[in-house]
Amino acid sequence: MASNFNIIWDEFSVPLRIFIKRRINNEQDVEDVLQNVFMKIYNNINKLEKLNNIHAWVYTVTKNTIIDYYRMQKHDSYLNELSEDIAICENLDEKTTINEISHCLIMMIQYLPEKYKQALTLTEIENVTQKQLADKAGLSVSGAKSRVQRARELLKEEFLSCCNLEIDGRGNIIDYEVKNLECNYCKR
């Protein structure tokens, strides 16, 4: 039980602190809410074996703890606003975030130089193997691999110039923020 809790702490403590901090301004209150979240997780750790999506469960516990915090503070006006924000947040789960980012990436691919656009479209979107790409483009297999790798690097550079990613302990993208307001690909 303690080892499961330690794993959850290692994976979620930083992203949850950021998540809470976006909703609560006072640093001491952020720490208190984070502590309450982990107390609830610790007290209900036995439910983990029955859960398919630990990530969703942890964030649901966190959202409910934030709501409890505002109820105790009797910030009714902010609680209503927060409830709407959390309702929206519940819809912006991990899959939605990935879908939004995927849309951005597909848009960015369209503006890559043609040979890189072709390489990524075929291999990443149409699931063509790199060997098949080599045959279609008249390249050696190593040439096709290099082209796909370079295309991925260009796409990554473009994406990171536009957006900041929030990543959990497993390396999964849990949220993103458009940092460049001039970015035409990723509008939230």
Rank of each mutant, 00 (worst) to 15 (best):
K117P: 02
Q118T: 10
Q118E: 10
Q118S: 07
A119T: 07
A119S: 14
A119F: 03
A119M: 04
L120I: 03
T121E: 13
T121Q: 13
L122N: 08
L122W: 06
T123Q: 14
E124S: 13
E124Q: 12
E124L: 10
E124D: 05
I125T: 06
I125L: 15
E126K: 15
E126N: 12
E126M: 11
N127V: 00
N127M: 01
N127P: 00
V128I: 15
V128A: 15
T129F: 02
T129M: 04
T129K: 03
Q130E: 13
K131E: 14
K131F: 08
K131A: 11
L133Q: 10
A134I: 02
A134M: 07
K136R: 07
A137K: 15
A137C: 12
A137L: 15
G138I: 01
L139C: 13
L139E: 11
S140C: 10
S140D: 07
V141P: 00
V141N: 12
S142T: 10
G143P: 04
A144G: 11
K145F: 02
K145M: 04
K145V: 03
R147Y: 01
Q149W: 04
Q149N: 12
Q149C: 00
R150E: 10
A151V: 08
R152I: 00
R152H: 11
E153Q: 12
E153T: 10
E153A: 09
E153P: 00
L154E: 07
L155F: 03
L155T: 00
L155W: 01
K156Q: 06
K156Y: 09
E157L: 05
E157Y: 06
E157A: 10
E158F: 00
F159S: 05
F159W: 00
F159V: 01
L160H: 05
S161V: 00
